[in-house]
């Protein structure tokens, strides 16, 4: 049974409070029992408590599936990119290295790539994924576009991402300000800016500064 086309996953990393509830809940998912597929990172632990949850973004043209030599990763018509089919995955690690969002993991003992599959056992029944059902801050949310518009009137959704010359569209949406003119997120922009990071913040956290 496919995931209903009106139901979407909404990701708002800026709301994450690092509570780990998603990490715990993810391990309860039937499709990878006992193993969490959440990627929850401190992005600069020395300077900030900010944490970032990332799940599989379920790309329309999944790079992981395209670079898979064993043809093990399949995207179903409802837009969900499934974890590798177990009989086929040869554990080459191509998907882990090629995913533009850095999501998949490699289970070496089991010779198997593993990743979020949008809790297909739940979402195909119209239920929320485990992580979204427990997130207390709304960083991870699952529902319809109408519901999220009503809940967050200052936000709109974005499903187009740029990585250098490559544009990727995804099933998962990221929340951006409603007044934003651009129709995409330029993911690699901060690589270009890294040389001239915010001078005020740098000075503020510089150990030598007063």
């Amino acid at each position: 049974m496919p995931v209903p086309p009106t139901l979407h996953y909404f990701l708002d990393p800026g709301r994450c409070i690092g509570c780990n509830a998603c990490v715990q809940a993810c391990a309860e998912c039937d499709t990878h029992r006992g193993q969490s597929m959440m990627q929850l990172d401190f992005i600069d632990h020395a300077r900030s408590p900010q944490t970032v949850p990332v799940i599989c973004m379920h790309c329309d043209t999944p790079t992981c599936a395209e670079v898979c030599p064993a043809d093990a990763i399949k995207r179903t018509e409802d837009g969900v990119v499934h974890t590798a089919r177990k009989p086929r995955c040869i554990a080459c690690n191509n998907c882990v290295l090629a995913c533009p969002f850095g999501v998949p993991k490699m289970n070496n003992a089991a010779n198997l790539m593993m990743k979020c599959d949008l809790c297909y056992d739940r979402t195909s029944q119209g239920l929320k994924p485990m992580c979204a059902s427990v997130c207390p801050s709304g960083a991870l949310w699952f529902g319809t576009e109408e519901e999220i518009r009503e809940l967050r009137p200052a936000s709109k959704t974005n499903r187009e991402f740029r990585f250098g010359g490559q544009t990727i569209t995804t099933r998962v949406r990221v929340m951006v300000p409603k007044d934003r003119a651009e129709t995409h997120l330029d993911v690699t922009a901060s690589l270009r800016r890294s040389r001239d990071a915010d001078p005020m913040l740098d000075a503020m956290y510089d150990e030598g500064s007063p």
């Binding site: 850095g102 250098g164 951006v176």
Partner: peptide, 20 residues
């Protein structure tokens, strides 16, 4: 972009959203 490690790719996504 292939020469950016997976954790930094996740960080870049967060930074792009934060910047917005």
């Amino acid at each position: 972009y292939q020469l950016v490690c997976p954790p930094c790719r996740r960080s870049l996504l967060a930074q792009a959203q934060g910047e917005a």
